[in-house]
Structure formats: C-alpha cells, structure tokens
Computed example of a mutant assay.
Amino acid sequence: MKNALRHLCRPLLAPLEAGNEPYHYKPLSRKVLLFFGAVFTFLGLLAAWLIPADADPGYYFPVVVFTLAGLYGLIVGALGEDRAVAKIWGNK
C-alpha cells in the first residue's frame, strides 16, 4: 500500500529525494513534521468550518494555504525517505 501511495505522490517526493549530497537525519524530525502537518491541516479545516457561508472569498486563502501546507507535511513525513525529511528541515 505504501508503495502505491509513494507512486501516486511521486511528483511531490521526487524533488526532495533527489541528490547524492550527504544529509543529516534525526528520527525526531519525522515525528515533528507529522505533528506540525496534522496541526496545520486541522487549523485549515477548522478555519474552513468557522467561515460563514456568505463570507468574502478572500477568507478562504488561509484555509487553502494551511491545509495544503499541512497535507504536504503529512505526505512527506509519512511517505518520504529520510533524505526528503532532512531536506524539509534544511539538514545537510
């Protein structure tokens, strides 16, 4: 199942997993990435739920940004290799 999801998310994961340069990976980095991904996704969905139906469309910009950032973090944290997680945190 994980391989099928990795293949589906390949356009997001491939740039982060590319390269031969050395990197420094800490297992805690993956846990923190998953935590913040979940928090950002939750905040985006909570904001979407709290916006009134007749609100200005501009209110949805933070919803989209927070939700997409959170989902990206969850995808990289759950499916990405150690190199991808290290690149997210800038560890080289």
Rank of each mutant, 00 (worst) to 15 (best):
W89N: 06
R6P: 01
Y23G: 00
P52V: 04
A38P: 06
P27C: 14
N3L: 05
V85G: 00
L45W: 11
L12F: 09
L50P: 01
L8G: 12
L34S: 08
L68E: 08
K92V: 13
P52A: 06
R83M: 05
H24W: 08
A48I: 07
Y25L: 08
T67V: 07
K92F: 15
A4I: 14
P11W: 12
A53L: 02
L8S: 11
P15K: 02
A55E: 01
A48F: 11
V64M: 13
V64F: 15
L43I: 15
A69I: 14
A55M: 03
H7L: 11
V32C: 10
A53C: 00
A14Q: 09
G37I: 02
L13G: 06
P52G: 05
V65N: 10
P27Y: 11
I51C: 04
I51G: 03
K2Y: 10
L68Q: 12
L5H: 12
G80I: 01
H7D: 10
S29R: 09
A4S: 12
P62H: 07
Y60T: 04
G70S: 07
W49A: 07
L43V: 13
G70W: 00
Y23H: 08
A78I: 05
I75H: 01
A69E: 07
G58S: 15
A48G: 10
G44C: 06
A84M: 02
P57E: 04
N20H: 15
L46E: 11
W49K: 05
W89T: 05
